[in-house]
Design a protein around this nucleic acid. Structure first.
Lengths: 365, 365
DNA sequence: TTCGGTCTTGCATGCGTATGCAATGGCGGC
DNA sequence: GCCGCCATTGCATACGCATGCAAGACCGAA
């Protein structure tokens, strides 16, 4: 003990102006550095009395554990990497918020990487991984094979939110995409629409594809056609898609958009540039049910997808994988339903009120 | 060299399934660990040939530097802490996006902390600091004195975006709040309005106060009164504020909202609950000029505040402070202007078209 | 050929914390 | 009163990388 105190004394002289370390605390409390470490480690073997003494010394020095140093030895950084594009889409902003709040409840934080929407395998993303993150979450972005391989090798769980991938070893959490497509199709058919259109994100976005395929199958099975455009999940892209659709000689009377954000763009173009009355001349339905969808300016009928639930499931997968230490790819779906508002003509049956919300359920033929 | 190789060999056997380290690379390349370190350090003294050899070895092993370990010695983490509330407000989502993209251009990332809007000195934020972040940025959140003291002591620059504080040692970047208030007031007075109202964030938000005071001074100097409500910077809060204002016996004909987000809520309530025509019955003006403000659904007249510029200035302050190693509090303002759209009645003069944008400049009496 | 200088390289150590191991002390049971 | 056990504590070392220092390599000049 004398020796430890002596060493600490010698060192502390040199560091007058810096963060106090465990050694400084140890010196003040008259214990060893390991004791201090244990005082700050839950479940470590240390006497309550000693612990008190150490915590007090720490307090007077303003000591805060250096988490960088801690994660060097524990190999746990308590940092979750998050790569995201489309932060301007309120849906994803909400997802980030939910993730962040839920993670901070367990002392974890988000290291954020704003990906460009296009790039799948950003080389910068590789460097991003060097921070020893505990898990990697990708939203509205797809990972490269190399990236996933890298993560699997180092035991870092990878979860995609609202993306699909053929790459193995990646878990996904998504909304009920097929059901969304089918339900919206059934809703619009029941509402008496005749000329259908779909605005997707990109032709290759698997999540969007699922919605598109399910929607198209249902509608075509009833003898109607579907005009398809892609809006890149951006506002201006969707606006251009809507413009193109509404300029068709046989103008659609129902447009299903793969996201609320793109539905807003469609409503904008329909009202401003084509002077259409909603839903008399055109019905628009989205997916997500973001907060804005319920605002009077849009009052959008949409298939919901709950950010809070996506975040919850994502974290559950991460935790399970970290606990079990074996990669296991899971595919979870979070439940959604068709929220009926005023942007689409109503079918005569199937609408039920639950509290202040109106929901439509397909009547199986 | 033999000795180094031998040690590395002994160690590498135990770590077959893990991240390769510099020692593994050194072993493969037949050099020392320090050589590998130098190969990855810009400007370090190393022969080009050796460097090549090392990089190749690193590539075959899939080596990536461990940035956690690196920052333990360099005391630079290349991580910027960001505490934010109101991520659901598109303005702040955009600020985050801009910050993230600009920082990643210099190899830095954002460690995110989602603060609750109310809490000033979240104790969790203290723990957040333990990650040896290079700088701390707070947006839509105020720091406690203790927090700032802690940061200053460890040489971490603190920058507030869109907040004020009396705490010393904190830099701020904001929009032209006084000018915003004055300009909007002048615009509305010139537009012939008579009954003015203001919806702020909170009574204590200094940034909002500046807008409020400047707005109020101008309007009152012209002999009018101003009704004031607070919306907490939330949608529902602002909606309640608008509801209260529009229920007044002497209903306002002009409402100035301290943010676009709250202006959207006001428009919603005015249209849906009070059946008012905009701008015939009511003019609404916001602050921020978020993307949504230009959408047909709102087409909001608003005083702009550029997220990209806020981010740029914020990073400039951080870099300057880190380079000079001396805390120096700066207060920067980023320029904005009144973007004229259709949510407010127009004055007869002062409107100028610049490209596709319409701007209003006060005519000094 | 020799010497001084520059460029490379390896060695040793430090960064702040965690943890296996051994040493110590206290306590109950006999 | 003695022994064994457990709780507590300190010691030593590891984590992966950066860097001051010294040694070696190499070159040109004298």
């Amino acid at each position: 003990m004398q020796k430890a105190a002596k060493t600490a004394g010698a060192r502390s002289r040199a560091r007058y102006n810096r963060h106090p370390t465990e050694i400084d605390v140890a010196e003040l409390a008259g214990v060893s550095q390991s004791a201090v470490s244990r005082a700050f480690t839950a479940g470590a073997s240390i006497a309550a009395e000693t612990r008190e003494k150490i915590l007090e010394a720490a307090k007077t020095l303003g000591y805060q554990p250096n988490l960088i140093a801690r994660s060097l030895t524990t190999k746990r950084s308590n940092i979750v990497g998050l790569a995201i594009s489309s932060l301007e889409n309120p849906f994803y902003a909400q997802v980030v918020k939910e993730l962040s709040e839920r993670l901070s409840a367990t002392g974890r934080y988000i290291l954020m990487f704003a990906a460009s929407p296009g790039e799948a395998a950003d080389p910068r993303l590789e460097a991003f991984l060097s921070y020893q993150i505990d898990a990697l979450v990708l939203t509205a972005t797809s990972p490269s094979e190399a990236l996933v391989a890298h993560c699997r090798k180092s035991g870092v769980p990878v979860v995609l939110i609202n993306r699909e991938t053929k790459v193995a070893g990646v878990s996904t959490v998504r909304g009920e995409n097929r059901r969304a497509g089918e339900t919206v199709a059934a809703f619009l058919v029941a509402g008496g629409h005749k000329r259908f259109a779909f605005i997707g994100g990109t032709a290759v976005s698997t999540v969007g594809r699922e919605r598109e395929v399910a929607f198209g199958e249902y509608v075509r099975a009833r003898g109607y056609d579907v005009a398809v455009r892609y809006g890149d999940y951006t506002f201006t892209g969707a606006a251009a898609a809507a413009r193109s659709l509404l300029s068709l000689p046989d103008r659609p009377d129902a447009i299903f958009c793969a996201s609320d954000y793109m539905a807003f763009a469609t409503l904008d173009v329909a009202r401003r540039e084509f002077d259409l009355a909603i839903p008399r001349d055109l019905s628009v339905v989205g997916v997500d049910d973001v907060a804005e969808a319920s605002h009077a300016a849009y009052d959008l009928t949409t298939f919901s997808q709950h950010p809070a639930e996506l975040a919850r499931q994502t974290i559950a997968i991460i935790d399970a994988e970290m606990a079990r230490k074996r990669p296991r790819t899971e595919r979870r779906e979070v439940h959604g339903e068709l929220i009926v508002r005023s942007s689409a003509r109503l079918p005569e049956t199937g609408i039920s009120e639950t509290g202040s919300r109106r929901i439509w359920l397909p009547v199986h033929d």
